[in-house]
Design a protein around this nucleic acid. Sequence first.
DNA 1: TCTTCATACCTAGCCTAACTAGGTATGAAG
DNA 2: CTTCATACCTAGTTAGGCTAGGTATGAAGA
Lengths: 114, 114
Amino acid sequence: MKVDRIKGHLDLVLLGVLSESPGHGYAVITTLRARTEGTLDLTEGSVYPALHRLEELGLLASEWQPVAGRRRRMYRVTTAGQRALQAERRDWRALVSAVEAVLGRAPATAVGAL
Amino acid sequence: MKVDRIKGHLDLVLLGVLSESPGHGYAVITTLRARTEGTLDLTEGSVYPALHRLEELGLLASEWQPVAGRRRRMYRVTTAGQRALQAERRDWRALVSAVEAVLGRAPATAVGAL
DNA sequence: TCTTCATACCTAGCCTAACTAGGTATGAAG
DNA sequence: CTTCATACCTAGTTAGGCTAGGTATGAAGA
């Protein structure tokens, strides 16, 4: 499934995952893929720049960790990031409520076609 | 509230509203604002180009109607538009499920219609 | 050995679509 | 005779997710 529909909600899921436990970018990608059973299959080209942007905004902090010869950039959510996450959650629920208010009256799953 | 978060879901709500009953652009805007109690307060600069795009794609059809000296462009959802709407609904539900799976079942989604 | 795969990171440039900020025009209300 | 609500339009900007490339290590397997 194409999930360019994540547009505008990428920060939400990134902050959401990292607020539970700090982790590195690649792990965030695989976590999202696993938790959503493949629905959220984000590319590195989406996630890494987003992580950089969130750090730039002060919502994430990172530090390099050497791991078996490789290196990982471990991210954690800052205090400002926690506040931002709460705001993102509120906005998300508002959007879901709004869309459901709009679509709620139409035949949802009852459409006979297909 | 800023709802640029509608990004990627504008087609869904436009097709959703117009599939219930044909209408003109300005009415769609006021309908969305009323139904969502102001949450979805879209600008004309968002809606009109979107309607044109959807018509260009064959998902909407329109015709001018004279109304008390003024003129309105009345839109209706085409057959292809109905199919597209169903696909949009599926994608929307998939996104909501995915985000909730990531965030750990957020509440406030008690509308059974979806 | 040598190739391939999984891990783990990065970025320049593209593309889409929502938004900004302006514009036109009518009719009613004040 | 001005202002407001209705009703439409679009050029140009912006944001941000995606494409498509790149670097590098370690382990598996041919």
